[in-house]
Design a protein around this nucleic acid. Structure first.
Lengths: 155, 155
DNA sequence: GCCTGATATTTTATACTTGAAACTTTTCCG
DNA sequence: CGGAAAAGTTTCAAGTATAAAATATCAGGC
């Protein structure tokens, strides 16, 4: 049984502790994924992220849309897409009648390549998060999801 | 009521969904923290992380210890510490009788500066994670903590 | 007293990341 | 129409990040 005083003191730190835990957990998993993507597919996490976003949008995405979705800066996406285009995994074109907007989508090669990576990625995540039961995973997802949508409304 | 079939299908994706949610949540908070650290203290998240680690170790830390604790590469820490030393916030010295090992600790200025940043940081986190109740925060922390320690044992 | 291997860190090359400035194209308004 | 503002993207400089190679030091064995 925790005393009321200790409980209140701990309340002050509960969110900070959660944040530190989120950060460490996410970093540890990212570290592992990065390593596996490099050895198994000779690619990187940012490239995978971009391809995953494009895979969800068969008709393509605008650069700005991509950067907003991935929560990274505009200029950042430019470089990653550039390299993916150079490797023939991504195709750039323009939206009808607007030469400002660039439409980016996976090439056929990109789609094939990504399919293999996505399957491995899903297995890896299931392995790395294995100790978390599906029910617990759903609970945490739900809590984080409501929190984020609330917060996004403020911003 | 969810059917048994739907439940099983969802089980397959629960961990992957959790991972994507963790990633997005962490990125969104990091983004916000980075911006606030820049405007309020003219500093960056990596610099804050290093200073936070050093603040916990008044007697100093070795470079390798620092990089393992922060889950970043060795060479990365070198650059960040270099800039902190240049700004007079961190002091480098050597361990007795071992000129390989560099001991890094906060300077007095660094300790003072960090105290202000840490207080603001704690407030910000409490604000940003506000929608998550302390009990929920404790639950999630606990789940992620056990999972990570289990996983670390494998690696 | 040297050689070998282990330890600790830095250096290097490349890629990622940001915020801000610059650029191009489009839209809107007078 | 003409010009200002807006929209979309890229460029830029600085900093962060990695893995791998290079460097420097230490600890033992011979």
């Amino acid at each position: 049984m925790v005393s009321a005083v200790a409980q209140i003191a701990d309340d002050d730190r509960a969110r900070l502790r959660l944040w530190l835990r989120l950060l460490r957990t996410t970093r540890a998993i990212e570290r592992e994924l990065r390593e596996r993507l490099a050895t198994a597919f000779d690619t990187t996490l940012p490239r995978f992220d971009v391809m995953a976003a494009l895979d969800r949008a068969p008709e393509g995405m605008m650069m700005g849309e991509l950067s907003r979705f991935l929560l990274v800066s505009n200029g950042n996406v430019t470089g990653i897409v550039e390299r993916l285009v150079a490797d023939g995994l991504v195709v750039r074109s323009h939206r009808d009648g607007d030469r400002r907007a660039a439409i980016v989508r996976l090439s056929d090669a990109g789609r094939t390549t990504f399919a293999a990576m996505a399957a491995a990625h899903a297995r890896w995540i299931d392995e790395l998060l294995g100790p978390i039961e599906p029910d617990a995973a759903r609970d945490i997802s739900a809590t984080l999801a409501t929190f984020r949508s609330q917060w996004e409304n403020d911003a």
